[in-house]
Every structure is written in C-alpha cells, then in structure tokens.
Amino acid sequence: MAVVEDHSEKTLVGPAIIAGVGVHTGRRVRLAVRPAPTGTGIVFVRTDVSDADNRIPVSGEAVVDARLNTMIANGAGTTLSTIEHLMAAFAALGVSNAIVEVDGPELPILDGSALPFVQLLDRAGFRRQPRAVRYVEILEPVRVEDGDKSAVLLPCDRYEMRFEIDFPSKVIGNQVVDFVVDEETFRREIMAARTFGFAHEVEALRQAGLARGGSLENAVVIDGDQILNPGGLRMDREFVKHKALDAIGDLYVLGAPLLGRYEGVKAGHAINNKLVRALLAAPHAWREVERVPELAMAG
C-alpha cells in the first residue's frame, strides 16, 4: 500500500533535553526542546537572560552574523549562535513548531553533526497538528555571488539540493552532492556528516578567543593532506555533505520548507543568509503555498 504523505504541521510529543559544550565559547550549555502550538514556528529562548527579552523567534531577518556559524538575535540584542545543525534536523524531520530553551549564548556542538539532534527529537516523539504546512515555492531564479562562491534558488516541484566544494587539500579536493531533501535521504546520507576545519585555522581561531570547545570529538580536523581524527571519515564525501547539512539549516530560517532547488558552489553560512535575504527582497520570485492534509480534504 502506498504511503500517503501528510502535509500538516508537526511538533514534539514531549520535551527532550541534552547538554554539551559550545564549539566557540567552550562553555557547557543545557538545551531543552519543547512542544509548541501550531503557528509558533521555531523560537529559541535564552533561559540565562533575565534583564532583557530572551525570546528569539527564527526568521531570515533574525540572522545577524554568519561568518563562522549562524547567529540570530532579537530586537533587544539577545543573541544565540550555532543554530544551524539543530535547524537542519528540524527541517529534515518536518518539525514546524518548537520552543528551544538554552542556558547559554551558543548551542552545544555535540559531535559536530546533526545526528545527536535527530536522536534527541526521535526520543521526544512527533505529533501532527491541525494546520496545513506552508511551503516557500520558488517561482523565479534568485542568485547571489561573492567572488568564486555562489548560491542560487531555482523553481522545482520538490526540494532538491546540489552542493559543490573545491579545496586544494588532497583529503578533500573537488566534491559534489546532489539529492532530494527529504527525511529518508537526510537520515541515510546527510545527518551524520561532521563539521570540519584545518589545523592552522583552528589555532588562529583559538588565539582570537574562538573555537575554545573545538576538538577531534566534534570536528574533522585536517593538517595538510592528513586527517587527524583517529577514526578517519564517517562516510564518502563527508565534507560536502556537511556543507549541504549547513545549507539545509540555514535555509530553514525562512520558517517553512522549500519547493525549489538550491545549488551552492563553495557557499557557507554568509552566502546562504545573503540568498535568504535576496529571496525575501524579491516577492515576485516566490510565494507561500499550503498543502492541505489529506484527512481534511476527505472531509
């Protein structure tokens, strides 16, 4: 029997809690993901902030820094960093509404991938909600560039992604991934791909007061043409798959899944957010559409 796709919003059955260190602050933080009513979207709450508005609803405009990770802020100046891996898990698993409480300025990096976040959400369980999912349908191409880096959104009747990277290191080289962004593919091929960096860059970041929590436990570290992690890579093309993972999370700040094709070349968080803002600034290039749940249609 064919599986009928459900296009209603989704939240969690109950809360799920996890703790870890922030990759840049090195500070231990506790994170709790909680169910939220339909129409809420994804809202982060800084529970350690009591002297200002501590709620940060996710949106394309909320992103204030995307150099090393995706940082969001609210009108009161309350910020939160490194949301992209959890956002990718929300996007791929179809979580429309959730409250995420965190007691520090940065989400925990955990193992550097989205896998622990998917496991966290799986433990909480999922519940459908009585409202049709809104989709962002791409009607016309939207493209941004920065030197040899680029990203484009193209019309497509489903969510597709192509990503290409090219590094001089023999460990990485030129890598391409092209896939349909759905839960099955994300779980099978994308979610366990870890963030990566080069040993000389890590040292420079630490001297700048960043990457204090970075280690071989939460990142693939490359030194010249050698991978320093004792276990090596988890999968084929892990580097480009992690960049795709980041892009899925970065695009979900739109607050809805895409009906379109994303193509990125050497793109990072900054290009991704530039693309999000370019899309929002071009209302003729997209529209919001709903897919009504089958049960509602049957009634």
Rank of each mutant, 00 (worst) to 15 (best):
M1D: 14
V4Y: 15
V4I: 15
V4K: 15
E5P: 15
D6P: 07
S8R: 12
S8M: 08
T11D: 00
L12V: 00
V13M: 07
V13R: 02
I17E: 15
G20H: 07
G20D: 03
V21W: 09
G22S: 06
G22A: 08
T25G: 13
G26Q: 04
R28Y: 09
V29S: 09
R30I: 13
R30D: 12
R30A: 12
A32N: 14
P37W: 07
P37I: 08
I42W: 04
V45T: 13
T47S: 12
S50R: 14
N54Q: 10
N54C: 13
N54S: 13
V58D: 10
A62S: 14
V64I: 12
D65G: 09
A66L: 09
A66H: 09
M71G: 09
A73Y: 10
A73S: 13
T82V: 07
M87W: 03
M87N: 06
A88T: 00
A88K: 05
A91L: 05
A91V: 01
L93C: 11
I99V: 15
V100W: 00
V102M: 01
L107P: 06
P108N: 04
I109G: 10
A114G: 04
A114D: 00
V118T: 11
V118G: 01
Q119E: 15
D122K: 08
R123I: 01
F126Y: 11
R127S: 04
R127N: 00
Q129L: 11
A132G: 10
R134Q: 15
E145L: 13
D146I: 10
G147P: 07
D148V: 14
K149G: 08
A151V: 08
V152D: 06
R162N: 13
E164L: 12
E164T: 13
I165E: 03
I165K: 07
D166F: 10
S169T: 09
S169D: 03
K170P: 12
I172R: 05
F179G: 05
E183P: 02
F186A: 04
R187P: 09
R187W: 09
A192W: 07
A192H: 12
F198C: 07
E203W: 09
S215H: 05
L216V: 06
L216K: 01
A219N: 04
V221A: 06
D223L: 12
G224A: 03
G224H: 05
I227K: 03
L233S: 01
F239R: 02
F239N: 00
V240S: 04
K241F: 11
K243G: 03
A247P: 10
G255K: 01
E263M: 11
G264Y: 03
V265G: 06
K266N: 08
L275Q: 01
V276P: 02
L279T: 04
A282Q: 11
A282Y: 08
W286C: 06
V289Y: 01
E290S: 11
V292H: 04
L295C: 12
